[in-house]
Design a protein around this nucleic acid. Structure first.
Lengths: 212, 212
DNA sequence: CAATAATGCGAGCTATCCTCAGTTTTGGGT
DNA sequence: ACCCAAAACTGAGGATAGCTCGCATTATTG
């Protein structure tokens, strides 16, 4: 059982839970996950260790909850890109540019939290599942736009998912460990160009001179 | 200090280290990282806990060492793809097909170990750095081939790196969590097609002859 | 065959996660 | 206003895992 062991019903307990999460976020960011003890978190939150364990079954559950918040916030930002796309019906290059910019912003907005969740924390199955779910949500929205534009090949859903996974990995790499002698902006531009080329029509099969 | 605290100099100690790593691999795979204790590892390896800590400064160092072995094995497999490419000088689609097939094989060969290292284990900075290093090595080899083929855009190095990062993420996703109603083979084919399109030159279709 | 270095040992220290029995606070019913 | 069951809170301490350290054992050197 990784989900809360008890639901806070009164106002007081909801504040307790919020304080615990806030404290956990701060300490995890400052000291790392392993170096932070649950007693420290409780102390900083101004509650007893027992209260912490009334709402979180173990230390990792705090991480999962923080990740969930972060992913929801991210999904919201990305959703904004797609609602704007639904209104303005931009061309592929414009849409992808917005998407890449948004993904990059998600990394740079809270770099420490992002690094904590993606590079340091032990990944519980729970955490992995939530990440995958967010990925699919975004991919689904992107697939809709690809269909509207008549691009993305014969299976836009699949290609949209791969695009989301690829862009995430590439932007992540570009921001945390940019290739020597290249600006981050250049990297993002290059990523954008790659995906424009990968997804744009014509999508005819070029079997020019060699077998599969 | 995450690297070995003492180097094994005699045959006896080298065997001890090997036994410890073997035991660690087995137990980590069977029970997961967190559920495995260092005392269990020592016991299974047939050595005392003190001996373990003579060669590994902490529990995570075992993981780093296992990851290092795994990455070296992977790099070797991939290097094979590129030495063969150097001989046969295949076209882009053929080269990418080999690469994707090889990456997929690395995932399916030892799925439990791979999952351990990529999805469960806490990622120490050391571990992350080694991943990045392997990535760059492969990207560098790929960039060479792209240059030979005259594709990969104006900055083949950068695009090769993005391709490696993207392919890894996409193959990983396709194998561990394939989209509903799609076979793994279909996914891999789709990934391949995306990267063919992303990297191939649309404007200049000159068949490369011998320019470095 | 000393003498010295390398290796191996394992009881136990330290520190962390988490429990639980008991206390305090809250809010709805009378 | 008052009562009281449910909700919330408390913190000392149990259980356990990572890791240390002084000493025994085995190998290597001169």
């Amino acid at each position: 059982m990784l989900t809360p062991r008890k639901r806070p019903r009164q106002q007081r307990s909801r504040e307790t839970v919020a304080a615990i999460l806030e404290a956990a976020a701060q300490l995890f960011q400052r000291q790392g996950h392993a170096a932070t003890t649950t007693n420290q978190i409780a102390e900083r939150a101004g509650v007893s260790i027992g209260s912490l364990y009334q709402y979180f079954p173990n230390k990792d559950a705090l991480l999962v909850e923080l990740a969930d918040h972060h992913l929801n916030a991210a999904a919201e930002q990305i959703a904004l890109v797609f609602t704007r796309a639904a209104e303005q019906r931009p061309a592929l290059d414009r849409l992808l540019a917005d998407l890449v910019r948004c993904v990059a912003a998600l990394h740079t907005d809270r770099p420490d939290l992002h690094r904590l969740l993606f590079e340091e924390a032990p990944r519980t199955p729970e955490l992995v599942a939530r990440f995958r779910q967010a990925e699919r949500l975004i991919a689904s929205a992107l697939a809709g736009e690809l269909r509207r534009l008549g691009v993305g090949g014969p299976a836009p859903e699949m290609n949209a998912l791969f695009a989301v996974q690829g862009i995430e990995a590439q932007v992540h790499g570009a921001l945390l460990d940019p290739p020597a002698g290249t600006s981050v902006a250049d990297c993002l531009r290059a990523v954008l160009l790659l995906w424009e080329r990968a997804l744009a029509e014509p999508y005819e099969h070029r079997r020019a001179s060699s077998a599969p």
